[in-house]
Amino acid sequence: MIAIQHDPFDIGALYRRLSDGCHGTGAVVSFVGRVRDFNESPEVTALTLEHYPGMTERALENVVERARQRWQINDVIVVHRIGYMTPGDDIVAVLVSTVHRQAAFEACAFIMDFLKTSAPFWKKEHTSSGAYWVSERESDLASLKRWEQ
């Protein structure tokens, strides 16, 4: 399941959706990305997330498909929120279920790494002294290197 939504998600409900009744699943790895109160500026009060409708869904489907080709995956859930969020809010959830844990850990990291560098989302951070668009991080681009085969 891939979802882009304004509403908050319930990670417990996503976990149950992924794993309930799946007796061949031996491992579930989940990642949740959250809004921090510091980033490029020390006092982030909120952020707004923009996306490119149509292309974002397609980019996420591509990333999930590439992960499926690389690891034996039983199921994947990717939920990404858009709109206005404040520190402590969840932004993104990626859950991967597999037979054994190693594949689940790796596939979850793989999906997040490519989501961050190829899915068209943009963050704007709001602080008490104004708002700015978040810049890309070199470390995000560098972390793709480990997936080069």
Binding site: G33, L49, H51, Y52, G54, M55, R58, A59, H80, I91, V92, M112, L115, K116, T117, S118, A119, P120, F121, W122, K123, W133, V134, S135, E136
Partner: peptide, 28 residues
């Protein structure tokens, strides 16, 4: 991006295509 696919360099553009320009992405 052209028709929702990221492109690099110069590519052909056809009538009805959707072309998008944007800064590096920062989601997640």
């Amino acid at each position: 991006a052209v028709n929702h696919d990221m492109v690099q360099g110069d590519v052909a553009v056809n009538p009805g295509d959707e072309v998008a320009f944007f800064p590096p992405v920062t989601g997640g």
